[in-house]
Simulated scan of single mutants.
Amino acid sequence: MFSHNKRLQYTVRVTETNPGLANLMLEQFGGPQGELAAACRYFTQALGEDDPGRKDMLMDIATEELSHLEVIGTIVAMLNKGAKGRLAEGVETEAELYRAISGAGNDSHVTQVLYGGGPPLVNSAGVPWTAAYIDTIGEPTADLRSNIAAEARAKIVYERLINLTDDPGVKEALGFLMTREIAHQKSFEKALYSIAPNFPPGKTPGDPRFTSVYFNMSQGEGDAVRGPWNSGNRWEVVSERDAQSAVDGGDGSATTQLDEAEAAVVAQMAGRTASVPAGDPMTGAELGMAEDDALTEVDRALQSEGGGADAPGAPRAPRT
């Protein structure tokens, strides 16, 4: 059950309207790193969570993300407020109104003309929000890692938005939202490491022959740079090209077992679709090229007579 408190989680003060900035703010309203995506991600995870502690945490954070959606949506609406009134009431000439919504940049017409200055569930490019932004897989150790990354991406977007405005009230509100991403990331990390063991994700262990092997597949400049990701006692580095294929000890080929009926049908299909390597068959592309790259017998005959449709300067008749 949800109940709504009409007070925002953080006070929003906008100094002046700015439709272009409002449109950029939509990235955190209806974009892939935005607050609605975060709220839906954690809410659906909470519903499927069996651990009471993680379930409560996910529900708390999902609900807070909805309050952040309200804050960022309010910023969008307030940044659009003045332009919304001018456009709705038509108090300026057509040219002035056009300059007001197009001169601000960032496709501010998306929110002005299409949505009347309100905060639509689209990103800053006008792409509608989609549930495809939610990548929950139902395994806590995998989902928590994904949540940590999602909070990190959201923080970066907020940093970029903060750098785009000199409005102190907007900066303060965005700074709060950015800071809460850090707090959520800490909670998710603590929850992840409270599961022991938490790596690798899931229950089935990896094949020990390959879990600590680093294949040096991209060779050339940069190979000399080594770090904990590919050096030390925990890694076996394989750089030899021949040793990078058929690592299971086989011959690296692909085979399948067919019964007699399947084998007969496959052989029949292979015979019917077999290539004929001998010869050089004429293709449709080559026939089409004749108009520009080769002369037909009619062309040659006309040229030998010194005139006709293909004489210099004469229009060329269409061929059928």
Rank of each mutant, 00 (worst) to 15 (best):
Q257D: 13
W235L: 09
Y214K: 02
A246S: 07
E240L: 04
E221I: 11
V237T: 11
S245M: 12
R226V: 15
D248K: 02
A261C: 07
A246F: 04
S231L: 10
N216K: 10
T256Q: 03
A224K: 09
G249F: 05
A267R: 15
V213Y: 09
S218E: 10
L258N: 08
D251W: 08
Q219W: 03
G227H: 05
T256Y: 08
Q268D: 08
G250M: 04
D223C: 06
V225N: 01
V225I: 12
T256R: 05
A261K: 02
E221P: 02
D242P: 09
T255I: 02
D259A: 10
G222D: 07
D242K: 06
F215I: 15
V265N: 05
R226F: 15
T255Y: 10
D242F: 12
G222H: 01
V265I: 08
D248V: 07
G252I: 05
L258P: 04
V237F: 00
G250D: 04
A261G: 04
G222S: 03
A254H: 00
V266M: 06
T255W: 08
E260Q: 01
S212E: 05
G232E: 01
N230S: 03
A254Y: 11
E221Y: 07
D251F: 08
P228R: 07
D259T: 12
Q244V: 06
V225R: 00
R234L: 06
S218K: 03
A267I: 11
A224Q: 11
W235Q: 07
N233P: 15
F215V: 13
A224C: 05
S231Y: 07
D242Y: 08
A264T: 06
R234M: 10
Q257T: 15
T211I: 12
R241F: 15
A246L: 14
E240F: 13
G222A: 10
R234K: 02
W235R: 00
D251T: 08
D242H: 12
L258F: 15
V225H: 09
Y214P: 03
N230P: 05
S239F: 10
N230G: 13
G232N: 02
W235F: 02
D259F: 02
Q244S: 04
V265C: 01
S212Q: 13
E240A: 14
D242W: 11
A263V: 01
M217S: 15
D251H: 09
G252F: 04
W229T: 07
W229M: 06
V238G: 02
R241C: 11
D251C: 04
G227K: 12
W229P: 01
N233A: 15
W229F: 13
G252S: 02
W235P: 06
S218Y: 09
A243F: 13
F215G: 09
S212L: 05
S245F: 15
D251Q: 14
E236Q: 10
G249L: 14
Y214V: 00
W235C: 03
T256A: 12
A267S: 09
V237K: 09
Y214L: 01
G252L: 01
